[in-house]
Design a protein around this nucleic acid. Structure first.
Length: 810
DNA sequence: CAGGAATGTG
């Protein structure tokens, strides 16, 4: 029982599948695909071999008998190279044939280094390598990705006149393709006096290996023109090329050829067909081929399961797993899990994911680099960040994909600081230096957008340019959004204008950029421009657009777009659209309408929806509605700090001190602490951080002085707040917590004295700005005649001449 | 007296 992969039965409606009646153990677990295990066994072989390279033996076996070579061959064929080496050492009359057996043995067992070593020893010993030796030596060079070694051997071939041997040339083609030297392979192929089927197949598979599927398909056609009949290898390779080129048409053609040449019932051909049809998006055809397979093996099942996952048929992928275990009594292997884990991630099926994890542990599939990476990804997407971290840290070997998965797990779960930290570790702490790729940046840029300073944003932008990844539209979109979120809307726009291939996301991002800066008119303008350019809006476009209307208080326009999305574009409103609408209604001050709207919604309200109602209640000073919203939020997220704090502030303003205490008690019980407000200002590219009533460094004295002067200048009496907002008996204690000492104010003061007169002051804040600071900032912008830009987690406030771009609703 | 090249699922 313990060896069977349990998948919880909740996916299978009328299933009686339980752990108890699950198929029993199948013990043949192929481990050969486990790179970790393979490497280790190889290296242990290597060390053992090196310890006793050629131990002189007393028992000298007389040559001349066939039995000796036969024995050596059977050792080599069974993979016991240790035994072969010790037998070899006892032979005192060597010949080329015996050397060839050894070299073949090493190469076929993946011991390429040893194969090359033996080849060298052979030559030094005065034995002539022949046409049988070279194919193995060349294959070993290919296996080591050692192109210069391969070239040296190639040069030798001319001397001994073996450069025309078909077998040798075919090996050369494969070797050159493997090391990526397409031109060399082509030259060998072109200059061959005689080409056989393997020569053609090697070209077809070689082009597929280097990622040139089109050439691969071309050679498949070309070989028929040359009167060369294809075999299963030609079909398998060219089907692989069709898959990687997503070319259903050529795939179908090859399928027809395979039927004509009676290859369609070959399991490997069928598996390749399943893969091709799935990758070309036609999972129905894949299923049809699968049903025709006579005897299905794990590879075929895996291809089918992978096909379902690739085409987002997640439930079917699990049904398939169940059938594989029950009908064919086959055990899932590492690849089955690698296929299924993304399915769990997509379905949010944490139980199934954990079950796969447990199975992997029991079967000894850990550590398997790809399985572990898939687990990190799955746990990250299911919100189990701790588990993702735990697996990532335990991994003995990590590649770039693993790092990318962990970085993405952090950003997806809002752990932006950790994401940035890990991204930096990628340079310093990864085993061999890893160069981040497009996926890395796609994963880390959202974290930069949330918490980076403009200077840090510029740095990452420079790095991306240096690595030549700016032409990637996906990355460009993220950069545009990052600049907008870091406060530089102008650069964001400039970069957006420069994107050559704008996709719908590019437009969504720029509409959102103007939204968060409170410029809904431009958002709408861009939306119209997008439609004129023939780009079809999607659901996210309307999230951007509705957000823009709600942030800028354009209630009527918001309603128009909300109604239009279904009517004119056939897009059903999702939960995010409803959220925007509640913000919009709250902004209009109509709380009852907002509540009614939530009731009427076709979707179940989430914590975020109630959060919008809470914000609206706060803005409209409606404690009853706020309590109503808060109750719902806390039923989803009992640890929602923001919800407690907001409610507590409302009670405090109403003078309901018992309730303030009650909330305080609740928070203590939950072990929650109020988020420390933190504001960041940059000076000469260096970030300066401030927290409420910051008292750390001495230089702050001057900033407090500036803050006090500003406070008095704008006619703000610090005692006024304390009297109206806080309990009289706590007046002295609360004085230090009064708004003039809030982090935003310190940051603004610092910004004003450390930037050039006339330049705007940019502040980033991790919490929403309070009403007093908002009022103060408006006045400060007026008396100093400076633009103050304060970004909070949702919007940017542009304070200019005593007004704020948010229209006093945020 | 013998031995050689190419292949499907992440």
């Amino acid at each position: 029982m313990a060896t069977t992969l349990l998948v919880q039965s909740r996916f299978f409606n009328n299933s009686n599948y339980t752990p108890e009646n699950a198929p029993l153990k199948q013990l043949n677990i192929p481990m050969t695909r486990n790179p970790g295990v393979e490497t280790r066994s190889r290296s242990s072989n290597r060390t053992r071999l090196r310890k006793n390279p050629s131990k002189p033996s007393k028992t000298v076996i007389e040559p001349g008998t066939l039995t000796l070579t036969r024995a050596l061959q059977s050792l080599v064929d069974s993979g016991s190279m240790d035994g072969a080496v010790s037998l070899f050492d006892k032979i005192n009359c060597l010949d080329t044939y015996i050397w060839n057996v050894m070299i073949r043995g090493f190469t076929n067992n993946g011991l390429f280094r040893e194969a090359v070593d033996f080849y060298r020893r052979m030559e030094r010993g005065g034995f002539r390598a022949d046409n049988f030796t070279y194919p193995f030596v060349i294959k070993a060079c290919g296996g080591l990705l050692w192109s210069s070694g391969g070239e040296m051997v190639h040069a030798k071939l001319f001397k001994c006149g073996l450069d025309w041997d078909v077998y040798v040339c075919n090996s050369l083609i494969v070797m050159y393709m493997k090391v990526g030297c397409v031109e060399c392979a082509e030259r060998v192929f072109d200059e061959m006096p005689v080409r056989d089927l393997v020569s053609w197949n090697s070209m077809i598979s070689g082009y597929h290996i280097v990622g040139d599927g089109m050439s691969s398909l071309m050679y498949f056609k070309e070989m028929q023109k040359h009167g060369m009949r294809h075999d299963r290898f030609s079909v398998i390779s060219s089907l692989g090329a069709s898959s990687s080129e997503r070319c259903l048409k050529s795939g179908k053609e090859i399928h027809c050829q395979a039927i004509k040449s009676r290859l369609e019932m070959d399991v490997m051909v069928q598996t390749s067909l399943i893969d091709m049809y799935s990758k070309c998006g036609n999972v129905e055809y894949a299923d049809r081929v699968f049903c025709r397979i006579f005897s299905r093996n794990v590879v075929a099942w895996n291809a089918m399961i992978g096909g379902y996952v690739l085409n987002a048929h997640f439930f079917e992928s699990f049904t398939c797993l169940k059938k594989m275990q029950e009908d064919d009594k086959l055990s899932p292997d590492a690849i089955t899990m690698i296929n299924l884990l993304p399915s769990c991630a997509q379905l949010g099926a944490l139980m199934e994911g954990k079950s796969i994890h447990g199975y992997a542990i029991r079967k000894g599939f850990l550590s398997h680099l790809v399985v572990e990476t898939a687990l990190v990804d799955m746990y990250g997407r299911c919100g189990e960040l701790k588990m993702a971290e735990c697996i990532f840290e335990s991994m003995t070997e990590k590649n770039l994909v693993s790092w990318n998965a962990m970085i993405a797990a952090y950003t997806q779960n809002g752990q932006n600081k950790k994401a940035l930290k890990l991204f930096q570790d990628l340079w310093s702490k990864s085993h061999e230096p890893l160069i981040p790729d497009a996926i890395t940046f796609a994963s880390v840029l959202p974290a930069y957008a949330e918490i980076a300073t403009l200077g840090e944003g510029r740095q990452i932008h420079a790095l991306i340019s240096k690595l030549g990844l700016v032409s990637n539209t996906f990355i460009s979109n993220s950069i545009v959004y990052m600049y907008a979120k870091c406060g530089d809307l102008h650069i964001a726009r400039k970069l957006f204008d420069g994107i050559l291939c704008k996709d719908v996301i590019s437009w969504n991002v720029i509409i959102m950029a103007y939204a968060i800066h409170g410029l809904a008119k431009i958002s709408i303008q861009l939306f119209n421009e997008m439609r004129e350019k023939g780009v079809n809006p999607n659901g996210s476009t309307f999230v951007s657009l509705l957000s823009s209307c709600s942030i800028s208080g354009m209630v009527d326009e918001g309603w128009d777009y909300f109604n239009s999305m279904r009517r004119d574009y056939g897009i059903e409103p999702g939960i995010e659209h409803y959220g925007c609408m509640i913000d919009l209604l709250g902004r209009g001050g109509n709380l009852d309408q907002a509540k009614h709207f939530i009731e009427e919604m076709s979707l179940l309200p989430t914590a975020k929806i109630w959060g919008s109602l809470l914000t609206a209640s706060r803005k409209n000073n409606d404690i009853v509605s706020a309590e109503f919203a808060a109750r719902h939020i806390l039923s989803f997220e009992h640890d929602n700090t923001g919800c407690y704090v907001l409610l507590s502030n409302m009670y405090a303003e109403a003078g309901r001190w018992e309730d303030v205490e009650r909330i305080k008690g609740l928070m203590e019980k939950e072990g929650l602490e109020k988020t420390v407000s933190c504001s960041v200002v940059e000076k000469n590219g260096k970030a300066h951080q401030f927290i409420n009533q910051d008292s750390s460094p001495n230089k702050l004295h001057m900033i407090y002085t500036v803050s006090d002067i500003l406070s008095r200048k704008i006619g703000e009496d610090i005692y006024v707040h304390t009297v109206t907002k806080f309990r009289p008996q706590n007046l002295l204690r609360k004085r230090s917590k009064s708004p003039p000492n809030h982090s935003v104010r310190l940051a603004i003061s610092f910004g004003l004295i450390s930037t050039n007169i006339g330049d705007p002051v940019l502040v980033r804040n991790n919490t929403r700005i309070c009403e007093d600071c908002h009022n103060a900032a408006k006045k400060i912008s007026e008396i100093t005649q400076r633009e103050l830009i304060v970004g909070d987690p949702k919007v940017f406030h542009h304070f200019r001449n005593g007004h704020c771009s948010c229209g006093d609703y945020w």
